[in-house]
């Protein structure tokens, strides 16, 4: 599944260079005399709507980038640009080092048939096809023989746990089941790059949790490069390697979860993360004190552990704990006072 040969060295899988997507007629004129982000007033004056405003970032192989932001902030548009469902107004996008925007439609189709998969917010299943046919669809489109596609699709059906329902039509499935079909379909061609646009937002909390677990399990075995859009910070924290926060088309900050919470780059990100429970983001590392042998206790805790997951045992221990680095032979690196944990949990 990992075909390393395609990524030479540390070449990022996805690379965006000041990508703009502006809806409206005067878009080109607006861009011609601008550099850097364009302000909201300028857009309004020109009668344009901003989708993506000067986005530049890289995603490495096997990394999961979660994109967040309020409704209308341009998340879907960004995804559409990178999958070239819509053409960016300007900027450059490289997929595995190849310029996406210079590809002709044939190359693009090749790319989508072999490298990309996408899961849609509203499932977007083909209503006239059964579960099995929906999943086999990309394979058949690709030109695989029917029986081969069906066998492969059947594997996918099992993978997402829909065995026994393969001959149902989408309308006969629940929302969660439909989304599994969508996931199975996007995985059928074994893509390296996986786009997921709010895949779980239509689901109820219980199923969502279940799906997230399943998703993590999948990702554990598949190691895909993923762009994942969500509204839900909890979800982001559970899944993300890095988080991008968007506002009005601008990527306000792109960083690891704890950095975003601890060091918000802008007022907006700060407000955005204000209500996020720290214990869910912060690792022990971020609240430990310097290592001091005399104060260290007997109990240990890993410096990479998320506070929430270890809080209970810490609070039970009453005395200071020793923080260790599990990657470096459990070498002690700091001490932790339980009172700090209480502060994170209950106070500011």
């Amino acid at each position: 599944m990992l075909n390393d040969s395609s990524t030479i060295g540390k070449e990022p899988v996805i690379k965006c260079e000041s990508v703009y997507k502006i809806f409206g007629n005067n878009a080109a004129k607006l861009l011609a005399n601008a550099s850097g982000p364009i302000s909201a007033e300028e857009f309004q004056k020109a009668g344009c709507i901003i989708g993506v405003n000067n986005a530049s970032f890289e995603i490495n192989k096997g990394e999961m980038l979660v994109v967040m932001g309020l409704s209308g902030s341009g998340k879907s548009t960004l995804l559409r640009c990178i999958s070239r469902l819509t053409d960016p107004t300007s900027g450059n996008i490289f997929i595995d080092g190849k310029n996406l925007l210079e590809m002709n439609s044939k190359q693009l189709i090749e790319l989508r048939r072999n490298k990309m998969g996408m899961v849609f917010q509203s499932f977007a299943l083909l209503p006239h096809k059964t579960v099995l046919e929906n999943i086999a669809f990309p394979l058949i489109i690709k030109g695989l023989p029917t029986d081969e596609s069906i066998t492969k699709a059947m594997e996918m059906v099992e993978l997402v746990g829909l065995k026994g329902r393969e001959n149902y039509f989408p309308r006969e499935l629940s929302g969660g089941q439909q989304q599994r079909v969508g996931i199975a379909r996007s995985l059928a061609v074994e893509p390296d790059i996986w786009f997921l646009d709010e895949p779980f937002s239509a689901l109820d909390p219980l199923i969502r949790k279940e799906m997230q677990d399943e998703f993590l399990r999948l990702q554990d075995s598949l190691h895909k490069t993923i762009m994942f859009v969500t509204h839900d910070f909890d979800e982001a924290l559970r899944l993300a390697d890095r988080i991008a926060i968007m506002k009005d088309g601008i990527i306000e900050q792109l960083d690891t979860p704890d950095n975003i919470v601890l060091n918000p780059a802008t007022e907006y990100v700060k407000k955005f993360t204000e209500d996020v429970p720290r214990e869910k983001v912060l690792k022990i590392e971020s609240i430990m004190d310097k290592y001091n042998q005399s104060l260290a206790g007997n109990n240990t805790v890993s410096k990479d552990a998320i506070i929430e997951t270890v809080a209970e045992s810490i609070l039970e221990s009453k005395e200071n704990l020793t923080v260790i680095d599990s990657k470096k032979n459990n070498e002690p690196v700091g001490i932790l006072q339980p009172s700090k944990v209480i502060k994170v949990l209950f106070g500011k």
């Binding site: 469902l85 996408m118 917010q121 509203s122 083909l126 669809f137």
Partner: peptide
């Protein structure tokens, strides 16, 4: 989105028309 899902499945124009849009 259904059309986009067809495109992401790698449909060319012909396939998009006859396999996605019309059905």
């Amino acid at each position: 989105e259904v059309i986009e899902s067809g495109l992401m499945s790698g449909c060319n124009k012909f396939q998009l028309l006859f396999r996605v849009l019309i059905p």
